[in-house]
């Protein structure tokens, strides 16, 4: 009896959700018919007619909308992947610094986390782009010799030129996401029993070595789920690219939608491309998670 009640409740909730979805889809269909616009994707093959500032593969304005969107997607992928790496590095360093015995390091990193988490990302991106990068002088700053050169034209990394839009977006996204990652890392490190720290210290192992070989492996299972959601956030936040003039998939879709008037199809494609991106990230993290858990057994 109890079980069938439970079942009824579930069916009820499912039906209610389906009803809502039905109303939404019905509204869309009715509105599309009313304005004489059925769904169509034929426009994807037509020439885009707009130039892109950055494209990883060859692209000309006479290429199709589909190809332009692909370039946007690749641009997104580029900044997301670089962002994941950079955010992880900064985040882990800052997180480890927060558990450090060095007072200055601890204060610096908790100041960083507090500051960055209080300010909206859009504002930070605009800051990095308009205030930090574009206000630099034209002659490059080279803090590490020829390794990295920073100017108002962007970053020159080992001879590889990164545009100023890409650089500002990458730095902004990474610094923002790394603040959350730092907290997750700190939480993970704190979940490791105090005794483990004392154990490696009493063996006379150096702090960094003990952190890497003793504490972090035990903290990883607690860190990974939180890390995944931060990675997903970074991917989704990358759509703010348009604010700093970077031609990501959202910026390209935006032009496409206005030129073709195909808003619903454009947004559907955007939804699908982000779903794909995020499934990719979740899938990768899932594999990593399994590897970590297996290695612990």
């Amino acid at each position: 009896m109890k079980r069938s009640q439970h079942f009824c409740l579930q069916v009820g909730v499912a039906l209610a959700l389906l009803t809502i979805l039905g109303v939404l889809i019905n509204n869309l269909a009715v509105n599309l018919i009313r304005t004489d616009m059925g769904l169509s994707f034929l426009w994807l093959g037509r020439p885009a007619g707009f130039a892109l500032a950055e494209h990883p593969l060859s692209y000309r304005p006479s290429d199709s909308y589909a190809w332009a969107l692909c370039m946007g997607w690749l641009n997104s992928l580029k900044v997301i992947l670089c962002g994941l790496v950079l955010a992880t590095v900064i985040g882990v360093l800052a997180g480890a610094a927060r558990s450090s015995r060095n007072l200055l390091l601890r204060a610096l990193s908790s100041g960083y986390v507090a500051l960055i988490r209080q300010i909206p990302l859009l504002l930070q991106l605009l800051f990095w782009y308009f205030v930090a990068f574009l206000s630099l002088s034209g002659t490059p700053l080279a803090p590490l010799g020829t390794l990295i050169r920073v100017s108002n034209q962007g970053i020159e990394l080992l001879g590889l030129h990164l545009s100023v839009e890409f650089s500002a977006l990458l730095v902004g996204l990474s610094v923002f996401t790394a603040a959350s990652i730092a907290e997750i890392v700190r939480g993970g490190l704190n979940s490791v029993p105090r005794g483990q720290w004392e154990a490696f210290r009493s063996l006379g192992l150096p702090e960094g070595f003990g952190l890497r070989r003793v504490v972090l492996p035990q903290a990883l299972p607690a860190i990974l789920p939180g890390l995944t959601s931060q990675y997903l956030n970074l991917a989704k936040n990358s759509t703010l690219a348009i604010a700093v003039g970077y031609a990501d998939v959202y910026a390209v879709s935006d032009t496409t939608i206005t030129q073709t008037g195909r808003a619903i199809e454009g947004f559907l494609l955007l939804l699908i491309s982000f779903l794909l991106l995020n499934l990719l990230i979740t899938g990768g993290m899932e594999v990593l998670n399994r590897v970590v858990i297996r290695s612990q057994q």
């Binding site: 007619g49 130039a51 892109l52 939608i257 206005t258």
Partner: peptide, 25 residues
């Protein structure tokens, strides 16, 4: 973004066979 200006800009430069880089906000 989101205006006919991007397309017009492109048409004008292509007609005159000039290259340019759009920075789109």
């Amino acid at each position: 973004s989101g205006t006919t200006t991007e397309q017009n800009l492109n048409d004008a430069f292509q007609e005159r066979k000039l290259s340019y880089t759009p920075i789109k906000y």
